[in-house]
């Protein structure tokens, strides 16, 4: 047999390894679950064991596929943009309970706009803050729903 041997695709091997790791965690968590009252024909452990096993098989197959170089073609991309968006959400996470909901939303808005090529952060921040104020007032004052709030919202 003349197999078309390609070079191993390292990222795919890593994905396979990650799946195996997740499988291990799921199965380990399955062992942590203890059955409780009554007689359960199939206990709460069934699903973690089944899914963990399934993931392990898929992870192993993915590793094999990666080693054989069987992976979809990928366009090169700009990870910087992804970092901007992820950073925006992370910043929101940090800011929301301290500085407040409105500044947190403004930062997320501006970071995302930056990821999409905007070069005017001040304008973006202002638009994001305006949007957040409208949302906050509507949710908190009109609908009576609570959003997490911080320093900025104490003025409302």
């Amino acid at each position: 047999m003349d197999v078309d041997r390609k070079r191993p695709d390292r990222p795919v091997v890593v994905i396979g390894a990650a799946l195996l790791a997740i499988a291990a965690v799921v199965v380990w968590q399955g062992f942590q679950v203890r059955a409780s009252f009554g007689s359960q024909a199939l206990g709460p452990q069934m699903m973690p064991f089944l899914v963990g096993g399934f993931l392990a098989v898929l992870g192993a197959l993915t590793v094999v596929a990666g080693l054989r170089g069987e992976a979809p073609a990928r366009d090169p991309d700009e990870p910087v943009a992804v970092v901007w968006i992820a950073g925006g959400i992370a910043a929101m996470l940090l800011l929301i309970k301290t500085a407040g909901f409105i500044p947190a939303c403004a930062v997320l808005f501006a970071a995302t706009a930056r990821a999409f090529g905007s070069t005017r952060p001040a304008v973006d921040l202002a638009i994001g803050a305006a949007m957040a104020i409208v949302i906050f007032v509507f949710f908190a004052k009109v609908l009576g729903l609570s959003l997490p709030s911080g320093l900025a919202e104490s003025w409302f």
């Binding site: 959400i89 929101m92 995302t112 090529g117 994001g128």
Partner: peptide
């Protein structure tokens, strides 16, 4: 414009 559209979508989604 796309930067604001996606900025808005992300704010909307997280809210």
């Amino acid at each position: 414009p796309r930067p604001w559209l996606y900025g808005g979508i992300l704010v909307f989604a997280t809210v």
